[in-house]
Design a protein around this nucleic acid. Structure first.
Lengths: 338, 338
DNA sequence: GTGAAAGCGCTAACAT
DNA sequence: ATGTTAGCGCTTTCAC
């Protein structure tokens, strides 16, 4: 278990190859125009023999390019983040970038802390799925020159590139579908909106669809708590308030849908007969419950990928490009619950 | 969008505070014994004013302690990895460590490449959920002095710390339960075993349980492909081969369970009557399908946490401790499918 | 208690 | 085509 060899550095390679370390550095950076074929060959050979690997800390410190990007998600344990991260990871890989990941549990203090410490590591850019509570802070960070891409949750569109699901469009589609199926009352179910852009926008989309599509007044039901008790009362309230009408739930994300479905099951409520249900996030299990749950499928993987592409664009093409909102299409998957 | 201020360094702080950068460095590293109360106070003030943040690349380069650990998982998109990472993240945070994460898609080449590049970043330790195809390579890495903890998938227990689910015990419990419920044939369903320690061990556990608990001969069904066609044929084979016996499936992980449940639904097979099913991984949806699926609940979060704890132990207490196998208890959750 | 000076392992002018 | 030199922003002897 003892270290077999002391750390090999560029100097060792230079000595053994009989050239200066500048030439080695040039080799490492692919500047082959500046060396003879035999130098090049000799160097490659020595590197191989010595099993040399450049120290990236030193490279980054000197060159100011770490080839690492930082990613801050709200909950790394959620399927949404998990797929988003997969998209980010895979795409970064293709660009030769590494990824540092942190998860904030939607705690604004952690968000700030993690972002600062990633900057301390000299990440070249940031992809942030923000809590929505750090707008000023993010703005300040951006002003210091680090590119920031917002994943999924928008704040100020004039300040940041934002990549997300086109959920306004999706919501309209969903509501039209509910109308077609004869639902006359649709309740909006969501986790607390807070300052979370996505939730607020989705509520807006729902409101608009109520007005334009269903011509009904909006009703919102917020899961202030996820206790069984609370969710059950929420459902009962929805039912009581809408009497004999044909009722459907519109759920804003997979987590919410999950809690609702669990509660319905405990209350022995069946869909679509007792209540219809339709929600955002086409998670694996949604097709397995009852006769399947009608969902809007978010392209989370692609959101991740597009975040990286936009970040690379900023990094390598135009640091000062005007911020863009990139909205990705999503699909309505109709199943038995509506 | 222009950089508001040039990068402020330890020298700037030193000048403004009227002390040497050595003292600032001492301050940054909490060595307050070596400075007067007023120096300390002055420095803290200047740092505040200047909004100074130490460059971690420089610190790590010089001190050889990056306070970053590297994590390599096989699929960042899977619920298992996602929860594991959450455990790792949260726990690292408490120790003041950052995390670099990569996902290999079970490609051994990527595994090697990512590990090397993390070492190039001077991560202090590695947590690896290995493909099982890089044993020699991992051994070599370990010999260079970097602590490596294996998450979930064991290879050589004499060489590496390993943290995982106590699935031998779990499997026995599951099989006893199946016996109690009157199942007379139990098939082992899994993704291809390959060199993946966990799968191989689980097969071993199943075999042993067949012999010791159910006194039947083992039957294994491998999802060589996840096409609908393939999984359906596999199920049909299981049924055909076991005629009128009371049959149950033992599935080795959530992914496998998911594919089986989907196929059963397409074939209109009901559990527990047509086939019982019981599997590892208590994922959210397992309680929602039919009358719920009986599962073994893996403590993935805790596996992550324990990996970090063990790594920190190695890093700070004893780099040469003998490798340990840490197996975490899991729980049998009995539901309608058996 | 505090500082000067020597690096950590690289990259990048500026030479030649 | 290649080398010399001066750092990047810190930490760490060693000296006072």
């Amino acid at each position: 278990m003892e270290k077999s060899e002391k750390n090999i550095t560029i100097v060792d390679v230079a000595e053994k190859a009989g050239v200066s370390k500048t030439t080695i550095s040039r080799y490492l950076n692919g500047k082959f125009e500046f060396m003879s074929a035999q130098s090049k060959h000799k160097i490659s050979q020595v590197i191989e023999e010595l099993n040399y690997r450049p120290n990236n800390l030193a490279r980054s410190l000197k060159s100011k390019r770490s080839r690492i990007i930082g990613v801050v998600v709200s909950d790394i344990g959620s399927p949404f983040a998990s797929i988003l991260l997969k998209g980010i990871s895979n795409c970064c890989d293709r660009y030769g970038y590494g990824v540092m990941i942190t998860s904030t549990d939607d705690d604004p203090r952690k968000e700030r802390e993690y972002i600062l410490s990633m900057i301390d590591q000299r990440v070249e850019g940031l992809i942030v799925n923000t809590t929505g509570e750090n707008n000023k802070f993010l703005e300040k960070m951006a002003q210091t020159g680090i590119p920031i891409i917002l994943a999924d949750r928008p704040i100020d569109l004039n300040l940041f590139d934002t990549v997300r699901t086109a959920d306004m469009d999706a919501t309209i589609k969903a509501m039209e579908h509910l109308k077609e199926r004869g639902f006359t009352k649709v309740g909006f179910f969501s986790e607390p909106l807070g300052n979370i852009g996505t939730r607020i926008w989705r509520y807006g989309a729902y409101e608009r669809a109520c007005r334009d599509v269903l011509k009904i007044s909006p009703q919102s039901y917020i899961l202030e708590s996820k206790s069984e008790e609370f969710v059950e009362r929420l459902l009962e309230r929805f039912i009581t308030l809408n009497g004999a009408e044909k009722k459907a739930i519109y759920s804003t994300n997979g987590v919410t849908t999950l809690h609702i479905v669990k509660a319905m099951r405990r209350l022995n409520l069946k869909f679509p007969d007792d209540i219809g249900i339709c929600g955002i996030d086409n998670w694996d299990w949604t097709e397995l419950v009852g006769n399947g749950i009608t969902v809007i499928s978010q392209p989370s993987y692609k959101v991740g990928k597009e975040c990286v592409k936009r970040l690379m664009f900023r990094l390598h093409r135009n640091r000062n490009a005007a911020p863009r909102l990139i909205e990705l299409d999503c699909e309505l998957v109709i199943r038995g619950s509506t």
